[in-house]
Design a protein around this nucleic acid. Structure first.
Ligand SMILES: [Mn+2]
Ligand SMILES: [Mn+2]
Ligand SMILES: [Mn+2]
Ligand SMILES: [Mn+2]
Lengths: 218, 218
DNA sequence: TCCTTTATTTAGTCCTGTCTAATCTTTTTC
DNA sequence: GAAAAAGATTAGACAGGACTAAATAAAGGA
């Protein structure tokens, strides 16, 4: 049985590794708004429990067991986010905080029932993949909006590393998962995009925003 | 902001007082499966926060603020139980443990949305009243099955102080909230009841069980 | 290479929540 | 109305989790 703090540390390590970076003490501390010294202690505990290998000064690798547990946490987090948005009508930029609490509720039955209730969703409200009960992740397209050309017409499938601020910005322009985006111009000066959403509404997206948008061709 | 432990202590005090007993250190400790010395410490903390008055050796009374907070915890607990049974298909004897965790999730918006989603229910799966967002409790009938006479036909509206074991026993006989019960005999020897449920099925309920059943005449 | 900077770990402290053992109050019993 | 029993509080210890400050290791530059 892991404590809430142990679970949060494990999940932080998992997502750092997932993002391609290797997991260093400082990064974990930054992500959890805590201090490196605290992280070192927690990593030692998780290592003692066989969930990861910690090479002092060299970072961390997850064991199979640790990866499995982390995936179950991610599963819970994203299922709860889906519940909050799909069933309770939360906005997609309001759910992270609450899901951060709900993911620690421990009941296997609850998770499985919730998933079933929601229709075994494969993606959460931000387009992030939801691991199934065996820890398998569905595939997600990797085409970034920044790699698209003027004239392309694409559909938004996910917002990468979504912060509430970014989600709020997109929401304000009426852009959500599934939105059709037609690229009409790109400014050389700052890399920003002009694009049409549904009924000839034009929006401008900065290059920073565009880099977070994953899309697919229809 | 209260810790999980503080919340559990406050709720324990509330339910003891609700049940008519006055709240003594030992009772709280028993209810929380903890030791009296630990309870004393927590009562002091809650008193410092203005949630209750603690007269050493004399027990505890809630302040208005403390009662209000306790009611919000009860509200959350019973709403989550309702969600688990009505939406996720849990049995009524499987939800207490999980609701004990879920009640500590802190988000006012979540509670209100959940209540709305469930149709602003006034009673939980055990027939216990759910406080509204202002802390107002709906009325519940107080007629006990033990006060009924042979020949009476009544409807089950609540199981008082339901333990999972009691709920499981009733569930096994197909008796749930709303069930019609027709009393056909009562044994002088042990006070046990013979009664019919729906289609001429006869069941026997001990006096101990009957004392927990709240019913109303149709 | 050696020195400086940065990253990380270790040591020591504090706060919370729990426990056991000892002490103190209140209630019961004779 | 004492003495015993029961109930409650206090004192002291410990584990978990977090922080600051000090020590140590790795990396980079002169
Ligand atoms: Mn969390
Ligand atoms: Mn998400
Ligand atoms: Mn609880
Ligand atoms: Mn209940």
């Amino acid at each position: 049985m892991l404590s809430r703090s142990e679970e949060d540390h494990l999940k932080a390590v998992y997502s750092l590794l997932q993002e391609g970076a290797d997991a260093f003490t400082n990064d974990v501390a930054t992500r959890l708004h805590t201090k490196p010294s605290s992280v070192t202690v927690m990593l030692k505990k998780l290592a003692d429990k066989g969930l990861l290998k910690h090479q002092p000064y060299r970072g961390v690798r997850l064991t199979a067991k640790g990866r499995g547990l982390a995936l179950m946490l991610v599963r819970k987090h994203r299922l709860w986010e889906t519940f909050l948005v799909d069933r309770l009508g939360f906005a997609w930029d309001e759910v992270h905080e609450v899901a951060e609490q709900l993911e620690h509720i421990s009941s296997e039955k609850l998770v499985d029932r919730l998933s079933h209730y929601l229709g075994e969703p494969a993606f959460d409200p931000h387009g992030d993949p939801i691991p199934d009960r065996d820890g398998k992740l569905p595939e997600r397209p990797t085409l970034q909006l920044t790699d698209c050309a003027v004239g392309d017409s694409v559909r938004l499938v996910a917002v990468k590393d979504p912060s509430d601020e970014l989600l709020h910005l997109l929401g304000g322009k009426g852009i959500g998962i599934g939105a059709r985006l037609k690229l009409v111009a790109r400014h050389a000066f700052d890399g920003s995009f002009e694009l049409h959403t549904a009924p000839k509404t034009t929006h401008t997206l900065s290059a920073q925003v565009a880099a977070h948008l994953l899309v697919e061709r229809p």
